[in-house]
């Protein structure tokens, strides 16, 4: 089974992760899981709410950046932590169902201020998509 994501000890102040997926959809879902495992105790979440999100960008890499940045914003606006993501991508358009539950500071870990462009990337290595994402904490 492919590893979903891992954290890389690269940044002193912040957090960098790599997420993997056999498909584009999977790497987007796993990147989102990695992001919310920084923000909250993701394994303790039992999703009670969900909503649809649609995003378009100029490339898949830009789409990943927009997707993760938008999830940060939606989490704060809706007051939810997210733990499950079902993504479909057609061309450079993403449609996703995002599942989460009320953001409770007791299971909150640390706020991610933004997704940054430092080492940011989405590549296909052999048959695996690899996303590299650094988060400003």
């Amino acid at each position: 089974m492919t590893k979903e994501f891992e954290f890389v000890d690269d940044l002193t102040s912040d957090v960098l992760f790599r997420a993997y997926g056999k498909t584009l959809e999977q790497v987007f879902e796993n990147s989102a899981k990695a992001l919310f495992s920084i923000i909250c105790e993701i394994e303790q979440l039992e999703p009670t709410k969900s909503f649809w999100l649609e995003i378009e960008a100029e490339s898949h890499e830009e789409l990943l950046y927009e997707w993760l940045s938008r999830l940060l914003a939606e989490s704060e606006i809706r007051g939810l932590f997210f733990s499950r993501f079902v993504v479909s991508i057609e061309g450079n358009k993403l449609k996703a169902r995002v599942y989460g539950s009320k953001a409770d500071p007791k299971i909150g870990k640390v706020q991610v201020k933004a997704i940054t462009k430092y080492k940011f990337g989405l590549v296909k290595q052999n048959s695996l998509y690899v996303a590299t994402v650094s988060c400003d904490i």
Partner: peptide, 8 residues
Amino acid sequence: IPCGVGAR
């Protein structure tokens, strides 16, 4: 004072 991630 609301504090921590998720506090409103």
